[in-house]
Amino acid sequence: MPDRRLGSQLAPHVHGWLLLLPAVALLAAFTYFPAVAALWSSLHSTPKGARPARFVGLDQYAAMVDDPVFWQSLWNNVLFALGTVPLSVAIALLMALWVNGRIRGRTALRMAYFTPTMLPMIAVANIWLFFYTPGYGLIDQVLGLFGLPDTNWLGSPATALPALMVVTVWKEAGFFMIFYLAALQAMPPSLREAAMLEGAGRWCIFRRVTLPLLMPTTLFVLVNAVINAFRTVDLVVVMTRGGPDNATALLLYHIYEVGFRYWDTGYAAALTTVLVVILVVLAIGQFVYLDRKVHYR
């Protein structure tokens, strides 16, 4: 019977699509549609009252070039990434190497390092707000013991962004440590022993065996760290609101302000598009550049 044959041929395809459907629906509704919609909106003016959006071409992007806050937040974000990514990855690796060794109480140590990751960012921000409070905050109290003057860490343009970087490193390093720790534990101990027998010292083993074998993990962690650096907004909202004088305005915070405080949604969409392009370029760049140096089994 032809009907049945057609049915039996179609059945696997139908099953396949049905299985994919939930994921496809969610991705389409919450990722792809908004992305395309943002790109679409960025080519239009912001609708205001009775005046609907109209096509303006690249006008929004032209406005961006003349927007000093955009350039400042982009620059801030580059500094923020440069300040947090290498440091948190390096600290994560160091902590992982340390708690991977045979030391007393290493389970407690691993837990301690991982705790900041489990805290919500809002809670972390509030804890650190107290640390940074001028006069009676933890840092100033400790510094006061040595007779040092009070500092308004979050209130002065010179220290506000570094202060946010410290919080980010503190929160991220423990998370990345878990990945390094997992990779270290998956490494057969005989490799280390073989290198030892060949006369390699600790540093030599680390440089010539451990580090190259950790490259896939490093790539993964780096991509995540960079994306996180360009997505940071909660910290800014809670701790500084971009101030003082836009010293801590990061890209996403600028987008948030433009979109939801000034309600200039067309311009916000253009900013969002630029941010996404930056992230895509960075991710592809890291994969292409590092992939050549990364060994995959």
């Binding site: 057969p188 005989s190 490799l191 022993e193 073989a194 290198a195 030892m196 027998l197 060949e198 006369g199 390699a200 065996v209 190259p212 074998l213 490259m215 060994h295 089994r297």
Partner: peptide
């Protein structure tokens, strides 16, 4: 003495070749 100074070579069950 540490392994490196015993003048020995070793073949491991898993071969322990460096994969990279």
């Amino acid at each position: 003495l540490p392994p490196a100074r015993r003048h020995i070579a070793m073949v491991f069950q898993s071969y322990a070749l460096f994969p990279h």
